[in-house]
Amino acid sequence: MTTPVLHTERLTFRPYRPEDEDVFVELLRDEEVCRWMGQERVPEADIRTLFRAILTEVYPKRRFDVWGLWQDDAFIGHAEVKKTGNVDGHELIAALAPPYWGRGLGTEVVRGLLRHAADNLGLKEAYGMVGADNAPSLAMCRRLGFRHVRDVTGDDGAVTKLLVISTTDPQ
């Protein structure tokens, strides 16, 4: 199955196209986005290599689903559903550009990913990894019905919350 285009009330989840490279790079070079995703800023060249791998490896080999998030004609973020190495299951990943924070779009993205996980992938549950310091994202996850599984401590000592939610009964 190829990565489908998804729609929510305000958003379109669209597989990346070659012309999306610059907005993808801009998002993943943003210091605030990197901080909340629990990763260091990496060189632009590495992000460009990652983007090209999405187009040449991920999509053709159907490794996992990955999208650019669009509100009308504006690129607002990134989303994925893929197997996670932390547990036997699939992880939901979402990153919004800072100008779009605090508008309920994160909740809309996660609900769209949950619907896709249930309807198109047949998953009964999905996982999320949220930094212990990311209070807004943790609050959103609680509102959606995610449950805490365990804390994961990285090599750098940073704590990430491993969360799980049923895809058949999301709030």
Rank of each mutant, 00 (worst) to 15 (best):
L50P: 00
P170A: 05
V159S: 11
V159W: 04
V42I: 14
R142N: 08
L69G: 08
I54W: 15
G154I: 00
R150E: 13
S137A: 14
C34L: 06
D73S: 15
P60D: 11
Q39I: 12
V164G: 04
V87E: 14
V33N: 14
G154M: 07
V23F: 14
L96H: 11
G106E: 09
W70I: 04
I165W: 05
A158V: 12
H90C: 07
V149D: 13
R111V: 05
I54S: 04
T160N: 10
A117I: 04
R41E: 15
A94I: 00
R111C: 10
M37C: 12
D156M: 00
Q39K: 10
Y100E: 13
E26K: 11
R142T: 12
A132Y: 13
R10W: 10
E108K: 02
M140Y: 05
T107L: 11
G106C: 08
L162W: 02
P15A: 06
D72Q: 14
D133N: 09
F24W: 06
E57S: 02
A45N: 07
L6T: 01
V42C: 08
R10D: 05
T160W: 11
W70C: 04
L121W: 01
K82D: 11
V109K: 00
A158T: 13
L27S: 03
P136K: 07
A97C: 00
N86L: 15
P60G: 11
T2F: 12
E40S: 14
D156I: 05
G112M: 00
L28Q: 15
R29D: 13
D73E: 15
L163C: 06
